[in-house]
Design a protein around this nucleic acid. Structure first.
Length: 318
DNA sequence: TACCAGGTGGAGT
DNA sequence: ACTCCACATGGT
């Protein structure tokens, strides 16, 4: 594959040659895993070869580390011309994550400083608004791997094909497409009680064209309020949609991990989610959502390490 | 086997 | 306004 020309995978899909992806502060493999697989997006998977394959809108790409820690991308030949710019936009390549993080109040917040240092180059993705809404409607009381599974089933069953073959080969269904899908068929995608929310939201959005796009452009408080009118969307999901699907970095989603983090690291024991959200926006400021992602990543890493420690203790004692 | 997962909505105080 | 709980499903 070193020579010029196209690569052909085992499935027969022709992929463009690997091309460099210019990125300030490219993430190492751990941080890349946090960006693509850490709960912002649910359409990426780590292939056996070590590269990531993902899909959004009508795009499909593969991503891997090249020489010097830089990132390289490849896409199905027919889509490759559009995929480069699209991937740059998706990864917010125009911004330097170090500069963004430097505008967080880490100087007066030792825990935040520690989180930022642990995930250098962490980025907030710029995902399509509709897809972000769909995935986070599915997210309620589910683990990330399960949300990925639901998204994959929805795409396969109800999304249009992207490119020719290989995985993931289907786009997520649009809201127009979802409006034609019965609640029972959504349940068949293992959505459980979330199927009703997706179904009702789809009917609403199909009946109100432009509503979602208008919401994405509205000022934060109004956008949040509008999203919360959708069935299945509460304050947490609304904030995730605005943060990951509309680039609204002031949104501060509060899930169980952030509740733990704010309780353990900031002493906010027993605080309600709405109170924590208010605290987060005011303490972390205009980039609160970025701070949130650092806290989220750090807390999950910490708990994983903690459970690992307990296991090895048990081993030694028993 | 219980308990938990990037929660929300409705009912009852 | 606040508290409690059902809601589907799969993993530990």
């Amino acid at each position: 594959m070193g020579q010029a020309g196209i690569a052909r995978g085992a499935t027969g899909t022709a992929w463009s040659p690997w091309a460099p992806l210019p990125l300030a502060m490219p993430p190492d493999s751990e941080v890349l895993a946090e960006i693509l697989g850490g709960g912002q997006a649910f359409r990426w998977r780590l292939e056996p070869g070590g590269e990531w394959s993902g899909a959004w809108s009508r795009n499909r790409v593969r991503l891997r580390h090249g020489p010097e820690g830089a990132l390289e991308w490849s896409a199905p030949m027919a889509l490759a011309a559009a995929s480069g710019p699209a991937l740059g936009d998706y990864l917010d390549s125009g911004r330097d994550p170090r500069e963004l993080a430097d505008n967080l109040p880490w100087r007066s917040d030792p825990h935040l400083a520690r989180c930022i240092a642990s995930f250098p180059g962490l980025r907030i993705l710029r995902q399509p608004l509709g897809e972000t809404l769909l995935c986070f409607l599915c997210s309620a009381t589910k683990r990330i791997v399960q949300i990925k599974q639901m998204a994959a089933l929805l795409a396969e069953a109800h999304g249009s094909r992207i490119g020719s073959e290989g995985e993931p080969a289907h786009a997520l269904p649009t809201w127009q497409e979802l409006a034609e899908v019965s609640e029972a068929d959504l349940r068949a995608c293992r959505l459980g009680f979330r199927a009703r929310h997706v179904h009702l939201t789809a009917r609403f959005l199909a009946a109100n064209p432009g509503w979602l796009e208008e919401t994405g452009g509205a000022p934060y408080p109004e956008a949040r309020q509008r999203l919360c009118q959708l069935p299945g969307v509460g304050e947490k999901v609304a904030d995730c949609v605005l943060l990951f699907g509309a680039g609204r970095l002031e949104a501060f989603p509060v899930d169980v991990w952030i509740l733990k983090a704010m309780s353990r690291r900031y002493g906010l024991e027993g605080w309600k989610p709405a109170q924590v959200a208010q605290f987060g926006r005011s303490h972390f400021g205009a980039l609160a959502g970025l701070a949130q992602q650092y806290l989220f990543a750090w807390e999950r890493m910490w708990e994983k390490a903690e459970s690992g420690n307990r296991k090895s203790e048990k081993k030694q004692i028993g």
